[in-house]
């Protein structure tokens, strides 16, 4: 099976330095687990992040240099000859970061897509079985027709980083013809400012209640009431976010 992993610009959110986003590392892992040759594909000039992607197991990274719509460029590049599998992270890191690219690409190529993929299984009759990761450790088995696009779950197993691979990866710059430009995103851009999340979603009774040396039975009652109020007990979906 021939797999291609889509690589974004790759910026670390804390340091702003080049880094392969966690989801793309997971995507490389999935691609490797499917077996066969795995290459990376990036629209734009190659950077340190693309080399590092090699460290996770890509043998080759093609950087497509051409102006315009990245989806159109990718679609054109991927159609001749098409790979069996295109993998991506949940969302890019360092650009628009909307997570739209794989969806737009799937729409354009007319391929099916599944997101949140934790593991890749076997291929049978042109169908690939995959496991989808849901919150709270829940899992869902699915089958998808090849060729397809898969978005890796951020928690899918990551392959180890190997410097020897990173230094040997072949990063190739491919000049491609320009695609029609995409409309510029409007609005004002500025440095990110962390905003507190809504309050009032906190638990019951306010914070910092201290109960000193209660009788065990009393302690048990208070604990249980508190856990109940937090919604941690009762139904199997005690995990619901409904507070």
């Amino acid at each position: 099976m021939r797999g291609v992993v889509l690589l974004s610009g790759g910026i670390d959110p804390v340091s702003g330095r080049p880094a392969v986003p966690r989801g793309e590392v997971a995507a490389i892992g999935l691609a490797l687990s499917a077996g066969g040759a795995v290459g990376g594909l990036h629209v734009g000039e190659g950077s340190v992040a693309q080399r590092q992607a090699g460290g996770y197991g890509l043998e080759r990274v093609d950087c497509l240099r051409g102006g315009g719509d990245a989806v159109a460029i990718l679609a054109a590049h991927l159609s001749a000859p098409p790979p069996d599998l295109v993998l991506a992270g949940s969302r890019a890191c360092g650009g628009e970061d909307s997570g739209m690219l794989p969806y737009l690409l799937a729409e354009r190529l007319g391929w099916p897509l599944l997101a949140g993929v934790m593991a890749i299984g076997a291929v049978a009759d042109g169908w690939l079985s995959v496991t989808i990761g849901l919150p709270l450790g829940a899992r869902q088995e699915a089958r998808i027709r090849l060729p397809c696009i898969l978005c890796a779950h951020d928690a899918a197993p990551a392959p180890p980083f190997v410097f020897d691979r990173a230094r040997r990866v072949v990063v190739r710059t491919v000049d491609v013809s320009d695609a029609p430009p995409v409309p510029v995103v409007e609005g004002v851009e500025r440095p990110y400012r962390a905003r507190p999340r809504l309050i009032g979603s906190a638990g019951p009774g306010g914070g910092g209640t201290v109960l000193e040396n209660p009788e065990p039975a009393e302690a048990a009652r208070v604990l249980l009431a508190h856990l109940r109020a937090l919604g941690m007990l009762g139904s199997s979906e005690g995990a619901s976010i409904d507070a």
């Binding site: 670390d12 702003g16 360092g94 650009g95 500025r190």
Partner: peptide, 13 residues
């Protein structure tokens, strides 16, 4: 919304 790896934000309609 945050853009650019959560290091920038953009306000738009």
């Amino acid at each position: 919304r945050p853009v650019g790896a959560m290091r920038r934000e953009r306000a738009a309609a």
